[in-house]
Write a protein that binds this DNA or RNA. Structure first.
Lengths: 198, 198
DNA sequence: CCTCCAGTGGGTCGATCGTCCCACTTGTTG
DNA sequence: CAACAAGTGGGACGATCGACCCACTGGAGG
């Protein structure tokens, strides 16, 4: 094992933990399983982190930060609000299909954080981030399509996040692509229906 | 400890397990914690169940069966489709607020079942049940309000389940009652908008 | 070249996990 | 009343968990 500074060990261990959780769930993320995934020794782990709990908190923070960037649109979308909304949902769904275990890990981590008193605020930050992100995207989309929301954008954002969560859970369970596609279409139409041309 | 036949022990242990999971999550549902909750000895556990896994499978089955009955409307609802839809969502939300830990336990159990190869079909049955239940309720509501769905009822049902799951997750995280109320109102209006008078 | 010290490897600790075993008690059946 | 089966209690098993300790190694700075 080459010499690696503790700071790099930390990110390597976090990545390994995400991998392990994706493969076997939060309960499989034992210290030993994580260091095995990272190809380290137990001592290296406790040199970089003081405890397993500290690592898990870092994992939650990491996942939150990474999730935020993944959903944002790559470029400027054009078309009606419904087209924009569907494109956004479709992009998220592609992400979900590309790495289902990862998204399931995110869900499990959210519930895990809710269970852990010291991490509840992380779960809340996670969802505040989702809602703020959705609100920003919705505002942007409305502006560039010359329309405005008939309900406060925060409400529309919360609806969109709820639909996304519901879509995720349902697809993770039954892996029904066509049903997911139809749900995306319906959701996009409904969300677009909550705006009118300015 | 009085003498109790194994069949009664089984249901008592399942109930105890649900209690423990609600309080501390799936990871807290150790054999010892469960028998302590039920006030039994370890031997009694392994007399009623051959293994901890067998108990967990029974717990998942139990929760599925119980969840199904809890959501059904008590009586005939009257009013517009939107009023009916909102009443249904509100009734579920009241259930959620009354026992949040229980609903979180249900979510964790669903993810747990997805992780356990021998239980994946149970998770699928759970969601098939949800979708069928929602479809039946929607059909019933449309009939009694003299309207019909503009999309296949299965699609509307899936949308409704997704909204319910999203509502649950969001509220479990931030416990924002007013936001949940607004989400319910919006969801009811949107679902009702997917039907027209016959 | 020598001296530190960040970083490593391996072994070990006590706690807790699921499971098992066996002696014991209690109700039932003939 | 005797015999048997159903159910109970407590202790013990090996495995695994998170945490820790200590002897060591190797590269960077004097």
């Amino acid at each position: 094992m080459p010499r690696i500074p503790a700071s790099e060990r930390r990110v390597a261990l976090v990545l390994a933990a995400v991998q392990v959780i994706g493969r076997g769930g939060v309960s499989a993320a034992t210290t030993r399983a994580i260091v095995a995934e990272a190809g380290m020794s137990l001592a290296s782990f406790h040199y970089a982190f003081t405890s397993h709990d500290e690592l898990m908190a870092e994992v939650v923070r990491w996942v939150i930060a990474e999730e935020r960037g993944a959903i944002l649109p790559d470029g400027i979308e054009i078309g009606s609000l419904e087209v924009v909304a569907r494109a956004g949902l479709q992009r998220y769904f592609d992400l979900l299909r590309a790495d289902p275990e990862r998204e399931q890990a995110v869900n499990e981590l959210a519930l895990y954080a809710l269970r852990t008193p010291d991490m509840q605020h992380l779960a809340r930050q996670q969802y505040e981030g989702y809602h703020a992100l959705a609100a920003a995207a919705l505002t942007f989309a409305a502006e560039h399509t010359g329309s405005e929301w008939t309900r406060p954008v925060d409400e529309v954002a919360r609806l969109l996040v709820a639909l996304t969560d519901g879509l995720t859970l349902a697809w993770l369970v039954d892996r029904d692509d066509t049903a997911a596609r139809q749900l995306i279409d319906n959701a996009a139409a409904l969300v677009a229906g909550m705006a009118h041309t300015r």
